[in-house]
Amino acid sequence: MLRRDTVFRFTMLLPLVILTGYFLLLVGSQSAFFSLSGFFEQLSQADIRSAIALSLLAATASSAVAVALAIPSAYALARLDFPGKRLVDTFIDLPMVLTPIALGTLILMAWNTAFGRILDSFGLTFPFTMAGVILAQFTVVVAISVRMLKATFEQVSPRQEQVARLLGCSAFGSFLHVTLPLARRGILAAIILTWARAVGEFGATVMVAGTARGQTATLPSSIYLAMSMADLPRAVTLVVILIGISLLVLFGVRLVMEERR
């Protein structure tokens, strides 16, 4: 019996060891091309600083808009009954299964219509602008945000909202005083992961905003540019920055999820 347990543990643990080793290999192999002096030298370059700033700024803007829209949308999907709910619930997942390149194409095409031209005449130009970077990131991350928040709201007992109503809260009051506080950990996790996904977005951003250095180039598109020009120190510096951001995000999510209350 004990022997069977040992075999079971080994069977489960071996793939985990292989995966961890593989990721350590990927990260560790960067050290051959990485030096601290080179890292700071790359950081002193204006276009790299611009890429970092644009990535952080655009990700913050796109994820803020995405979460702001996702919170009520996710609540509606989790709690309310309305005609066509199943259809809407499926349709809103589209950006999660569609490749970002295709999403970028969809955005570009949409702006090539009468609707896009009207917005353009009001000065809302997205192709090859910073606004385009934000729109591309928003399009990719909003569905992820809705999905995560829907799961979060589903975990809040409707009974608690009902009791709040009977204790004097309006529907909005119950949402504000009961649902949001109870969902706060899930909302925080959704914000962090949405932001992280936006920082790493590449395909749709390149399609919509291009990779103009110092203008629309983000961290991921700068890595692509550096690699295409065989500029390895630059590429590795950018990768290390992205790894740093990712580790911070993962640590943040873990802290939020492990918070006792």
């Binding site: 007992s157 009791v163 009977l166 204790l167 809260c169 309006s170 529907a171 109870l182 209350r261």
Partner: peptide
């Protein structure tokens, strides 16, 4: 009439205390 204006108090099976 909406629930909050009926002034009925309610104790459900799972109590629904607010954990926050």
């Amino acid at each position: 009439t909406v629930p909050e204006q009926r002034h009925i108090s309610y104790l459900p099976q799972d109590l629904a205390l607010f954990p926050h």
